[in-house]
Nucleic acid binder design. Structure first.
Length: 287
DNA sequence: CTAACTACCTGAACGC
DNA sequence: TGCGTTCAGGTAGTTA
């Protein structure tokens, strides 16, 4: 299970596990939102004194953070957006293995922000995460963010709008969702979960109004429930009870290939679609 | 412009 | 036991 490691160091002096598969659920919108909620009280109003980064192409103009105060901690889709004083904005994407931590650094820390109160580390085993400082609101250098769809839990995301977007696209529905254009923040895990809830085959290219509305509801419901579960996870985590909480049985499709569908008991099928592992029920998600 | 494809990156799991 | 191969996946850049 993936946990945002934002709490104080539980095991001082003990190196963290280098694992990146089983310690990590890839952060999608609910995980990034949970990170945002934990970061906001600790970062809002703080001044970045200095920044230290390991040089890599996915870090752009990060040095321009130095000396600036953080005005807010926001989020769009899977991107964290931190407006800085002086008309700049720090954009952070956790990629697949990124986390933001206030505890002790380790060899996987790729960037360190020294604050007027505390130190924030950006840890990222696989280096898929991105950090960039831009002029506030200017996302031209970040194409996915620039053309990002509506926030799924906002009023900007509507069943009719999703239906219209699906009609305009000629892609299969799942890769289209992953493009971030019809809606922001849906990744591989929640795409499979939402399509299962809506009983839509991930290969489908023509989706009517009713099914689009079902997908709209499936996306909103699964993301909202996942955000709630993160809260539960945090509480369990703080209690150090060693259990994975109720998250294990939350995912009904992703990672469940071969196991019976929770609706009809047909074994779930796994295929590769658009280069991504895709699990669905061949019976209740017929084409 | 849209869609399809590939590179990037790393450690775990797997096969022999 | 050891070593080489495969896999996972979000985004950006390139190509058709």
């Amino acid at each position: 299970m993936w946990l945002p490691h934002l709490l104080v160091d539980r095991h001082p002096g003990v190196p963290p596990e280098p694992s990146n598969r089983h310690d990590g659920q890839v952060p999608e919108l609910p995980e990034v939102e949970s990170v945002r909620r934990q970061l906001a009280p600790r970062l809002t109003g703080r001044r970045i004194i200095a920044v230290e980064v390991t040089p890599q192409a996915r870090f752009v103009r990060v040095g321009e953070c130095a000396g600036r105060r953080i005005e807010a901690v926001g989020r769009r889709g899977k991107y964290l957006l931190l407006p800085l004083e002086g008309g700049r904005e720090l954009v952070m994407h956790l990629g697949m293995t990124g986390s933001l931590r206030f505890d002790a650094p380790d060899p996987y820390v790729r960037a360190t922000f020294a604050l007027d109160q505390g130190t924030l580390h950006f840890r990222d085993v696989r280096r898929f995460g991105r950090l960039a400082v831009v002029e506030a609101g200017d996302y031209a250098a970040i194409p996915t963010l620039a053309s990002l769809g509506p926030e799924p839990l906002s009023e900007d995301f509507r069943p009719e709008g999703l239906h219209a977007a699906l009609r305009r696209s000629r892609m299969a529905v799942k890769p289209f969702l992953l493009s971030q254009r019809p809606v922001a923040g849906v990744g591989n895990i929640y795409a499979d979960e939402a399509l299962w809830r809506a009983r839509i085959n991930p290969h489908a290219r023509r989706i009517g109004r009713d099914r689009a509305a079902a997908l709209w509801a499936g996306i909103r419901d699964v993301l909202a429930e996942a955000i709630e579960r993160e809260g539960t996870t945090f509480r369990d985590y703080r209690m150090v009870n060693g259990e994975s909480g109720r998250f294990a049985d939350f995912l009904l499709v992703y990672g469940q290939a071969g196991r019976p569908c929770a609706r009809c008991a047909t074994p779930l099928t796994k295929v590769v679609l658009g280069g991504r592992g895709t699990t669905y029920c061949p019976a209740c998600q017929r084409r």
